[in-house]
Design a protein around this nucleic acid. Structure first.
Lengths: 255, 255
DNA sequence: GATCATGTTGCATCATGTGCAACACTCGTT
DNA sequence: AACGAGTGTTGCACATGATGCAACATGATC
C-alpha cells in the first residue's frame, strides 16, 4: 500500500531476530544504504528502534510501552481481571485470559499460581495454537470457512505424544469443543501440564475471549482439575455478563 | 526525516490511548482521510494495527509479539535470569532487572515473590524513574552532563511523602548512590514497599543494568530488607562477571 | 426514502523518497 | 605513518510514489 511505510515496518521483525547494522538492514530490505538510514532514523525518532553503543540497531523501548498501553486498554481484560483474581484465590492455580487476532492467539492477562511449581507463559506471548485449550475455544467459534482455512495453514508441531497431529484431527476437536462449550488441554503442550478452559462471549454471542485454569500434574491430577470445570464456566459466564452488559464493543465510556 | 513513515508511526501512540476511527486519526494527523486510510492499511498489513468489528482501529497483536521477541533477545536479560531465579529462591521476594534507554527505565525481567502479597509491576512497564532504586543506579552512572539534563527535564510526582521532590534532591541522591554503589527506595513509590538494588556492569565498567529486591512492609521491615544488601550485591556482581566475560556488546555468538 | 456521517476508489499533480557518488570516519595492516 | 578496507553520512537531480480532491459506496437516523 504505502511503499515507504511498508519498508520501514519490515525493519521491525528483522530487528526482532537480533541487532543488525546499517548494511545488513539495507541488504535485507533490498534498498540503498542511504534509504535504510533514513528509515532507521525515523523509527529511531519514534523510539521504536534503538541505536546501541556499537552503532547497531535493535528494537527500542517505546515498543514495550506501546504494547503495555495497548494491553491495559483492552476492554475484556479490564472487565475480566477481577474475576480472574477471584478464581485464582479460590483454586490457587494459574489463570489465563486469551484472545484471537489474525491467526494468532495470545495471552492478554494472567494470574500466577500460588503453588511453587509454575507454568511458563507470558502476557503477549503467542499461544501454542493447535493444542492450548483457550485456542480451541477461540478458533471453534470462527465461521466454518475461516476455521477450515486457518486449520489448513497451521503447523502442527508434536510438542508431546498427545499434541494435535494434523488439520483433520484439529477440526474434529474444534467441533467437539464448539458442541460442549468448553475445552481442555491434557498434556498436549507440556507433558505434565493440564488446562481447562471456558469461553467469554460478547453481546452478540460470539466468543470474544477465553479463559483457562492450568496446573501441573504434580499439583493436581487431570481428574481433579476437571472438577474445577463448573467453577471455570461460572466465572467465564460472569465475565460474559459483565462484558456484554455494557459497552458491547460499541460506545466508549469516555470521549 | 521521512514524512510518510513519520506520520504512520505517529498513529501508534495515538491508538495507544484507545481505539479510534478513520476520521479521528486523519484529524489528529492533520492529513486527508484517504491518506490516513492508506497509512492504517499498511500498519494493518504488518499487524501493528487491528481493525475491530466496529471498524475502529486499535493496536495490533504483532506489537506484543515484537516486544516479546525483543525482550527475549536482550543479552543481559538472558545472562541474568538464572541468577535472579536463584536469588528469589534464597530470599523469596520479588526480583527485578531493569535497563535505561533514552529517558526511560524499564523492567526487562522479573521473578515473582513467593509471598502472597505481591508488588504490582510488569515487564516492559516504564519504571517510576525518580524514585525507583534501579532507576537511581542507572541514572547515577550517566555522564555528568547528561545526568543533569535528564534530571532537569523529569517530572517529580509525589507518589508518597518520601518521593524525591525535585531535580536538586534527585541529583544529590544520585551522587550518593554513585558513591556507595547501591541504592534503595524506602516507600518512595508506594508507601508500604521497600527495595534494595545493585548495578550490573559491562566489560567497560559502565552500568548496563540494575537489579533489585522488593518487599512490602507487611512481610519484612526496611531494616530486615537491608540485611539482604550483601546478597543482592553479590548476585549483581556475579551477573556482571558473566556479562562482561563474554560478548561485551560487541560480537554476536551467532551469525 | 431523503439526509447525514463515514469509509472507499481513481486520478492528476508535484512533493517526497530514492539511488548515486562523493565525503568522513574508524579500524586494522604493512 | 601511510594506506586501504569497511562503514556511516551528506547533497543532489530525478521520477517514483504519496497526496488531496472529488466522486462514489455504504449504512445509519429520522
Amino acid at each position: 500500500m504505502s511503499q515507504t511505510v511498508d519498508r520501514a515496518l519490515s525493519i521491525l521483525p528483522l530487528l526482532a531476530e537480533g541487532p543488525a547494522d546499517l548494511g545488513q538492514v539495507a541488504d535485507r530490505l533490498g534498498v540503498h544504504k542511504s534509504t535504510a538510514l533514513r528509515l532507521l532514523r525515523t523509527l529511531n525518532e519514534h523510539g521504536l528502534v534503538y541505536r546501541q553503543s556499537d552503532q547497531r540497531y535493535r528494537l527500542g523501548a517505546r515498543l514495550f510501552a506501546l504494547a503495555q498501553e495497548a494491553v491495559e486498554n483492552l476492554d475484556v481484560r479490564e472487565i475480566a481481571h477481577p474475576h480472574l483474581v477471584r478464581l485464582n484465590e479460590s483454586c490457587g492455580h494459574t489463570v489465563h485470559l486469551a484472545v484471537y487476532e489474525e491467526n494468532e492467539v495470545l495471552y492478554i492477562d494472567k494470574v500466577e499460581s500460588r503453588y511453587p511449581v509454575r507454568m511458563y507463559s507470558r502476557i503477549g506471548k503467542p499461544v501454542a495454537i493447535t493444542v492450548a485449550a483457550v485456542a480451541k475455544l477461540l478458533l471453534a467459534d470462527l465461521p466454518e470457512a475461516e476455521r477450515r482455512a486457518v486449520a489448513e495453514r497451521l503447523d502442527y508441531p508434536m510438542y508431546t505424544a498427545r499434541s494435535t497431529p494434523n488439520a483433520p484431527a484439529f477440526l474434529k476437536e474444534l467441533a467437539t469443543v464448539r458442541e460442549q462449550g468448553w475445552a481442555t488441554d491434557l498434556g498436549g503442550h507440556e507433558e505434565s501440564i493440564n488446562c481447562v478452559a471456558a469461553p467469554v462471549r460478547g453481546a452478540d454471542g460470539r466468543v470474544a475471549a477465553a479463559m483457562s485454569v492450568s496446573a501441573p500434574n504434580v499439583v493436581v491430577t487431570a481428574e481433579e482439575l476437571l472438577t474445577l470445570l463448573p467453577l471455570v464456566r461460572r466465572t467465564a459466564d460472569a465475565i460474559s455478563r459483565d462484558f456484554s452488559g455494557r459497552a458491547p464493543t460499541k460506545e466508549d465510556p469516555k470521549e
